[in-house]
Design a protein around this nucleic acid. Structure first.
Length: 584
RNA sequence: GUGCCCGUAGCUCAGCCGGAUAGAGCGUCAGCCUCCGAAGCUGAAGGUCGGGGGUUCGAAUCUCCCCGGGCAUACCA
């Protein structure tokens, strides 16, 4: 990476200058550290290193340090200047050409790195109850999670994506009871969901169970006719598992449609059946981590940083949700994963301490668990934010996708840092104009592709109406670009063209540190921001530089640059699992 | 009460491992199409970085105290 290269060059210069005694009290082995940055102001060059932090070692004023270090720097094809405590580097054309060449050679791999060093990561996200359609909040985790998975893979991690199905517990019984009512309705009975405030909470009154009931009656007509207002346990089980399977199927279909692909769906029910939950409780017990109080079984989570102990087995003998979750996470570690990354809604943040405690109590490193807490999603309609209720006024993820499209939905779900509540403006996301960043970026890609199409098709002269032969023949284009003399980019008599090309290429170089930093911070939103900047630089370059000129050599050089841009845009959008269209 | 997140331009947000004149998009205003997609570009106006103290040569950034907003604080899942 360029920044690192500049830091290395500067570090050497400092050491040499120190050995020659030009930096006063600073010694070559002093523990100084440098940072390279891209100046906001272009006057200050392409890359700047601030050496002010050396002042405390050298006991010299920053400007004097900068000058002494700059004098010792050994670098070709690069202008160096100093301003105050800064050393500014203005890169020569050989650096810029190399960047384009590198992208041309590495193609889809450009920007990838080995930061993750093959670590095995299990990334768990969405993990919704199979009791109904996804709501909009789930969409944020689905988009974020799948983009993060792609990003981490690109940064050298070995990523396994898992969806934990919360298919045990009361909510499944409630689902079965709700289907029961819908089935009776389907059979013509006059029955409705209870209106009592407390009783109401045990039902899912959404319309989505109506088609499920129709299907159920069709497939199990004999059974359905035996149903009365009172349910036997067995009947409830049958209804519950039918509804559960149906819901899961619908969820999987939608995830697929939303470009979100899991390696595994892990069922909580199976976890219980496997005996792993009991085993885990026994293990905790053997380790002396449990005690009984008031008829319940407690876990001493407060020994490991939780603010209080937690119940694992209730007085009625059943396990809490936490118990299964402890077993589940223990199982993840036993499956050999080095890192457990979970995406949870911010409303679960109280849960982090107890999960960490359980991992530590079972003798593992709690730092293996990394929980990304995501803030909630507001829907903005006509300029007004509305909170998404789970049951009332539910706007489902599917509704949203149908309304604004997969690409725009994904992009907008990823665009903000996970730490901030997301205002999803439906009108804005739908708009196909420049106010919508996803279209701005996709347009840049389509435009780049269109230049390539034009490069090899015949055009018509507007004045003479005569056909003009294609600039390049189909089979010569690739070679022409690969062999292009990139120096021609800088030999034109047009300052704006040169300046915009420089800016564009430096932005392309930024892709590498960007990926590294986005992966480190688990922050796919940084890719969106980068894409918008890159697209802006490209549109600017396009405005100032005609690519398809009659000078074929110059055209080839500019086409090489356009190719690099479309490669990086395509890679970036690919990480977000958003389409990079060739035409729009 | 306690814990976590947020408070930066009219709006939505970057920047926050301290560093040069605080950035982007939208919106507003003024311009640019006989030529590769104007779904684009150029320029202008717009800020006491919620408030106050502290650390530092230097704070939007670190720290403390306030003030606003959100989320949580279950033997629910």
């Amino acid at each position: 990476m360029l920044k690192q290269y500049i830091i290395d060059v500067t570090t050497n210069a400092i050491k040499n200058a120190a050995k020659e005694g030009k930096l006063n009290q600073l010694k070559a082995d002093d523990a100084f550290s440098l940072n390279a940055e891209i100046p906001k102001n272009e006057e200050f060059g392409d890359i700047a290193v601030n050496v002010s932090s050396l002042a405390k070692f050298a006991k010299m004023a920053p400007p004097a340090i900068a000058q002494a270090v700059a004098a010792a720097i050994n670098i070709d094809d690069c202008e160096i200047s100093t301003v105050a405590g800064f050393i500014n580097f203005k890169l020569g054309k050989s650096f810029l050409n190399t960047i384009v060449q590198e992208i041309m050679n590495q193609k889809n791999d450009y920007g990838s790195n080995d930061y993750g060093a093959g670590q095995k990561v299990i990334l768990e996200y969405v993990s919704a109850n199979p009791t109904g359609p996804f709501h909009i909040g789930h969409g944020r985790w689905a988009a974020m999670g799948s983009a993060l998975a792609n990003l981490l893979k690109f940064a050298g991690y070995n990523v396994y994506q898992e969806f934990y199905i919360n298919d045990a517990g009361n909510q499944i019984k409630n689902l079965g009871r709700s289907l029961h009512i819908r089935v009776l309705q389907e059979l013509g009975e006059k029955i409705d969901f209870p209106t009592d405030e407390i009783e109401k909470k045990s039902y899912y009154p959404g319309d989505y169970l109506i088609p499920v009931a129709k299907e159920f009656v069709k497939e199990n007509s004999a059974f359905a006719k035996t149903l009365t207002n009172d349910l036997t346990t067995q009947q409830l089980d049958t209804l519950s598992s039918f509804a559960k399977a149906k819901m899961l199927e619908l969820q999987k279909e939608l995830l697929n449609k939303f470009h979100t692909h899991f390696d595994n769906f892990y069922s909580e029910t199976d976890l219980h059946k496997s005996g792993k939950v009991e085993q885990c409780v026994n293990k905790l017990n053997e380790l002396g981590m449990l005690y009984e109080k008031e008829g319940a079984l407690w876990f001493k989570s407060s020994l490991f940083g939780d603010d209080q102990d937690r119940v694992l087995r209730k007085t009625d003998g059943s396990n809490t949700y936490l118990t299964a979750d402890i077993a589940y996470h223990h199982d993840k570690i036993k499956r050999g994963f080095d890192k457990l990354i979970n995406i949870w809604g911010a409303d679960h943040h109280g849960y982090v301490a107890r999960m960490r405690a359980s991992i530590e109590a079972l003798g593992d490193d709690p730092n293996k668990l990394e929980v990304l807490l995501g803030q909630l999603v507001n829907i903005v309609l006509n300029g007004e934010a509305t909170r998404m209720g789970k049951r009332k006024n539910m706007v489902t993820l599917e509704d949203l996708i149908d309304e604004v499209g997969v690409d725009a939905t994904r992009y907008w779900m990823i665009i903000r840092s996970i730490d901030t509540t997301l205002d999803f403006d439906i009108e804005l996301a739908k708009s196909k104009t420049d106010e919508n960043p996803v279209f701005y970026v996709q347009y840049a890609h389509a435009r780049a592709c269109s230049i390539f199409r034009n490069a090899k098709t015949e055009r018509i002269n507007v004045e003479t109406k005569e056909k003009i032969a294609p600039l390049f023949e189909e089979d010569e284009l690739d070679k022409a670009i690969m062999d292009a003399d990139l120096n021609l980019l800088w030999s034109v008599d047009d300052e704006k063209s040169i300046a915009s090309a420089r800016k564009l290429i430096l932005k392309l170089e930024e892709f590498k540190p960007l990926i590294l930093s986005a992966a480190k911070n688990r922050a796919p939103y940084m890719i969106c921001k980068y894409l918008q900047e890159l697209s802006g630089c490209f549109h600017q370059f396009y405005t100032f530089s005609r690519v398809l000129t009659e000078d074929k050599k110059l055209a080839a050089a500019r086409l090489a640059l356009v190719k690099s841009v479309s490669t990086v845009i395509k890679t970036s959008l690919g990480l977000l699992a958003v389409e990079a269209p060739e035409r729009m």
